[in-house]
Structure formats: C-alpha cells, structure tokens
C-alpha cells in the first residue's frame, strides 16, 4: 500500500465513524481523536473499519501509532509492506 492510498483509507475510516468530520480543517499531525471528539466507541469503530478495509489485524498495542493522520498512514504502509 502506498502512502497516498493509506492516507485515503484512514480518512475514509474516520468519515465512516464520524460522518460529519471536517477533515479539510484537520492537519496531518493533529491528534484527530481529540480534534473530532471521538470517544472510545468511535475509536473502536475506526479501528474496526480500518481493519476491515486493509485486512490487517490491529491490536490494542498498536493504537499509540494511530493518533494522527500521518502516523496512521505510516503504520498502514509499514504493516502492509
């Protein structure tokens, strides 16, 4: 998976959980969970969607990598190599 695709999947997964998320106003290095006021259920939904779309298993231990858009994209790129 290249980085552009990865970033798209991350964004799509966020929008799936927070349909009215303003991604245009969200910086690549912003902590999106805080910025979009995602609670733990939303975040779990995000992980589920991400997992479904990429076929990756994402564990609780991986979640520290999934705080920003760019961090999440990097994580996906690294895992799908």
């Amino acid at each position: 998976m290249n980085r552009t695709d990865a970033l798209d999947v991350v964004k799509e997964s966020i929008v799936q959980v927070v349909p009215d998320a303003d991604l245009a106003g969200l910086g690549l290095d912003d902590a999106f969970r805080d910025a979009l006021e995602m609670d733990s259920l939303d975040f779990l939904g995000f992980i589920e969607t991400l997992s479904e779309r990429t076929g990756l298993r994402i564990d609780d231990e991986d979640t520290p990598y999934l705080t920003t858009l760019s961090g999440s994209a990097d994580f996906l790129v690294a895992r799908t190599k």
Partner: peptide, 17 residues
Amino acid sequence: LHEHNRRSPVAERILPA
C-alpha cells in the same frame, strides 16, 4: 480485558466502558 481483546477479532473487542 486485555487478555480477552488479544484473543478476539476486532469486531468482538470489549471496551472498559
């Protein structure tokens, strides 16, 4: 909880809540 979630697919994970 961690033990349960480690063994479970994402869709079956349980939150502390």
